[in-house]
Design a binder for these strands. Sequence first.
DNA 1: CGTCAGATTGAGCAGCTTCAACGTATGTGG
DNA 2: CCACATACGTTGAAGCTGCTCAATCTGACG
Lengths: 238, 238
Amino acid sequence: MNPLITKLERRDRLSDDERRALQDAIARVREVDARADIVQQGSRPTESCLVLEGFAARYKVTETGKRQITAVHVPGDFVDLHSLLLKVMDHGVLALTPCKVALVPHDALRRITDDHPHLSRLLWLSTLIDGAIHREWLVAMGRLSAVERLAHLICEVFTRLDVIGLTDGTTFRFPLNQVETADALGLSIVHVNRVLQELRGHGLLTWRGEVIAIEDVAALKRFAQFDPTYLHLEREPR
Amino acid sequence: MNPLITKLERRDRLSDDERRALQDAIARVREVDARADIVQQGSRPTESCLVLEGFAARYKVTETGKRQITAVHVPGDFVDLHSLLLKVMDHGVLALTPCKVALVPHDALRRITDDHPHLSRLLWLSTLIDGAIHREWLVAMGRLSAVERLAHLICEVFTRLDVIGLTDGTTFRFPLNQVETADALGLSIVHVNRVLQELRGHGLLTWRGEVIAIEDVAALKRFAQFDPTYLHLEREPR
DNA sequence: CGTCAGATTGAGCAGCTTCAACGTATGTGG
DNA sequence: CCACATACGTTGAAGCTGCTCAATCTGACG
């Protein structure tokens, strides 16, 4: 099943026709190795990439070689849908784990925008949710402490995975290692390690290998000041 | 003249029909006092606000009462266009200066998405540019020093004002005071004041009252690692 | 002339970084 | 099966960046 359809149906109802249009827009499927670039910064894509399986991240590198991860993507996310209109990629996208990616030609997407106004609005919506997540990250970066920020990121990934059925309610695969987590939070690796131990010390979670188990979801959310409103999970006509 | 039309025409060509559709969508114009909320966090707007004159900012307040400004808006920006599809405002918008704001009913916007696919893509584009700016701010927050961050913000506001003809090439109105600048950069007021003096000390700019004069635009951009690609200023078919 | 918002300054301290080393699990070639 | 390499995580010490608290300054305005 196309996980984008699941994602959109979580927010609104799709007609059979719309589901078909989305499915037919996929030209081919590509496998990407872990750590490889899915889309290069500065490129002008002619097709957009939808993550079917695996995890990806958007990132930018500064002139001084520092990396900042600006978004984490899970199955169902259309990682560079915006290249349809922005034309030039102002950032790169990389596979955090091995990924299976659906390629959707811009021609096909443009045809959807011409012929399926409601479906177009839902594609637009998915980019608006990306924007809402960016804003939440900005608040976390600017106004939360390092520990709170880490807890917040974990809550977000947990919630987004829970929505697509990829948790068992407490345990899930966290696709970032400590280096990548540091680049997502704007911290040093060393400090990520220390604040992680702080979360462990409070008995809020365990994190071994790629697996995180949240001991007390409500407590972690409280600690992180996590409010999922910004993920816009309500199902209503859009 | 509607400054949104100017903004969109900077990125693509509009037909007479599209210009008219945009203009006709405006139901009424509202004046907002400086510091007043234009849109409240948590509200469900039935119309979206387009800034005609003045400056605005999006912001969120944390549970502990700290404020983070996530975007600065200039004339031509559609500050809560996304509420058309997100439905619930996940942040507030406030007037930084007295503002004249055009109110566009969601009904009218929805009609545009049904009847004007190309114009809809350009409205979508404007929200994508907001997203691109969010990403650039994330990089600045995570990986630039406080001085660089301040310089970067000044470069961005300068460039965006320059594009709409609101600078004379070096001098422009900077709509944030030091308190608001601190909230936009995720810094304390005291530190904003200190890094500002550093920029002054390097002879990069003067800032008195609401007016900034950049001494050497190229030097400031270099210092801030400012690359305007993320503003997507190219004019091409979208 | 008093008031008020905004800007500025100083001192001391906390949070986070840097550098450098060490630990641990996993894999690989001989 | 061992020697070695590699990736990732962990720890300690020292220092810098930016914060907090508190006071003072400045200009605009009634």
